[in-house]
């Protein structure tokens, strides 16, 4: 597949990432179990009349999407593709609680309408008046990667020239507490906080003046062990005529749980001499947290600089051309994403 070009990358996360003037310079560390997103003034992105029915995830998604388009100097993309693991959980919780509280009576329409997984993609399209291809992928920890893969395919098949892809998830108020309790019962639980965020990227078929990185390859697979992951990564790189030695940095979705052994396996073998990075201590763990990793990687290529807070080892490279992202959750929904300079 031909590479596709990244023309803008926007992040709303638990760090101050929406402001493009710095790249992870003054980061926040988290003591508690939640890493809530830093919200911008949404009135600059959405009219108060439109925003009054929108939950956190929808507002974050629209703001990130609009800024991504503005930075790419693109008015309307040919396609909008969104990934989300848990959708609009805030409104789902509100609607389900209303069913319980009111004994299945007096159900109001707003939270029901807004509770579907494709609300973010739909609201972005409504805001932009974009009637093009619009799909939302819900594939657990591979939701964002599924959206990117679809975007890549559309561009490759010449069905679109520009695509807006993104990932968005919100913390909500209730389910997250059950997830925290369930995780606490694990022998080796997730140690990063749980987070939320919205990340959007403008992609194009051809290289533009504002293109700063390219997606060379992406692979999603469901199963791997600490042993087989080494073979899988070598096979993946082989498809692009690369070896592990050609990788200038590896970005790992480590979250502290028992399945970090998959990352460790690569750190101790194939990528022993490669700069190793992590990011979930900054954004928290959530189904589309890997989009924060993608944003981080695109920015490393753009700035040719790795912020100290990301480093797992002290190895440096003179330049960062090929960077590999590897993410998985609980030993499932694995993804390799290969970004390159352009």
């Amino acid at each position: 597949m031909q590479p596709c070009y990244i023309n803008s990358a926007v992040s709303i996360s638990a760090q101050d990432t929406l402001d493009n003037s710095s790249f992870l310079e003054n980061t926040i560390s988290f003591e508690g179990q939640l890493a809530k997103a830093i919200h911008p003034n949404y009135k600059s992105f959405i009219s108060p009349i439109a925003s009054r029915r929108m939950a956190t995830g929808v507002k974050m998604g629209i703001a990130a999407a609009k800024k991504a388009l503005a930075l790419a100097e693109l008015e309307t993309p040919d396609a909008i593709i969104t990934g989300t693991g848990i959708g609009c959980i805030e409104d789902s919780e509100k609607f389900l609680n209303a069913i319980l509280d009111n004994d299945e009576e007096f159900l109001t329409p707003t939270s029901f309408i807004q509770s579907t997984h494709n609300t973010v993609g739909a609201q972005i399209a409504l805001t932009l008046k974009c009637k093009g291809y619009n799909v939302t992928y819900v594939q657990g920890a591979a939701s964002f990667e599924s959206a990117v893969l679809d975007g890549q395919l559309l561009l490759h098949e010449n069905e679109a020239k520009t695509v807006l892809v993104g990932g968005t998830d919100e913390l909500g108020k209730y389910l997250i507490n059950d997830i925290i309790l369930a995780e606490a019962a694990e022998k080796q639980p997730i140690t990063t906080p749980f987070g939320e965020g919205a990340h959007f990227f403008s992609l194009s078929q051809s290289k533009q003046n504002n293109s700063f990185a390219a997606i060379k390859g992406l692979k999603i697979f469901n199963k791997a062990t600490a042993e087989t992951i080494k073979i899988k990564v070598e096979d993946f790189l082989k498809e692009y005529a690369l070896t592990t030695e050609n990788i200038d940095a590896i970005v790992l979705g480590k979250n502290g749980d028992a399945f970090d052994e998959l990352y460790q396996s690569l750190q101790d073998s194939s990528f022993k001499s490669t700069p190793q990075l992590h990011y979930k201590h900054l954004c928290g763990e959530f189904f589309t947290a890997s989009a924060f990793g993608f944003w981080t990687t695109a920015n490393i290529i753009k700035h040719q600089h790795i912020p100290e807070v990301l480093k797992l080892n002290t190895i440096k490279k003179s330049s960062y051309k090929n960077i590999l992202l590897y993410n998985q959750l609980k030993g499932q929904q694995h993804s390799f994403t290969l970004l390159t300079s352009c």
Binding site: E105, F106, L107, T108, P109, T110, I113
Partner: peptide
């Protein structure tokens, strides 16, 4: 106030509840 049809449904439910 600029309310719309969805608001009308919300108000109907409010009257009932």
């Amino acid at each position: 106030l600029g309310l719309d049809s969805i608001d009308a449904l919300e108000l109907i439910v409010m009257l009932d509840k």
